[in-house]
């Protein structure tokens, strides 16, 4: 193989890039994707797979805001906020979806307990937000009416 000066630098540069990429990977603290919880078929099973046997209390300190009627189930904007101290994670569940656990967001010490996202809903269902704070689970639920489903098609 003939190596010109140019292609030599190109090759060296590329491999250096790959090495840098590989070296940087372990530093990312991925949220460990909880397969069991995400593939659970019922709400109770999903909550159990996610949180184990921690007790849940309905709490007014969790503010869940969702539309009362969602025209399109493919995009339902949900926001959750809480004034509870020491919030570790916020999870969203849709009771009647094929997979009830939609998302789970873990927050660091300097993060604020307020998140917003868009979710899919197959049909009219109850949306539940569970906030994990101080070793306890705090729950808020709201019924969302869906006129056009967003799953399947």
């Amino acid at each position: 193989m003939k190596l010109s000066r140019r292609s030599f630098f190109k090759t060296v540069g590329k491999s250096a890039g790959y090495i840098a990429l590989v070296a940087s990977l372990p530093q990312i603290a991925w949220a460990k994707w909880n397969e069991k919880a995400f593939t659970a078929k019922t709400l109770d099973a999903a909550i159990k797979a996610k949180f184990g046997d921690l007790s849940i209390v309905d709490s007014g300190d969790v503010k869940l805001s969702a539309p009362a009627i969602a025209e399109n189930g493919a995009m339902v904007q949900i926001s959750v906020s809480s004034k509870l101290p020491d919030v570790k994670s916020i999870s969203l569940f849709v009771k009647d979806n094929p997979a009830p656990l939609v998302t789970s967001m873990n927050l660091g010490p300097s993060a604020l307990a307020q998140i917003k996202t868009r979710i899919r809903m197959g049909k009219t269902s109850e949306v539940t937000a569970i906030v994990e704070a101080g070793g306890k689970l705090h729950r808020a639920s709201q019924q969302v009416k869906v006129t056009i489903g967003g799953c399947g098609g």
Binding site: K32, L101, V102, T103, L107, I115, K116, R120
Partner: peptide
């Protein structure tokens, strides 16, 4: 922020924190 996402999140996910 470290989020886990399932298929219940909309296409082209939007997240705010």
């Amino acid at each position: 922020f470290a989020g886990e996402f399932g298929t219940g999140v909309s296409k082209d996910p939007f997240i705010s924190f």
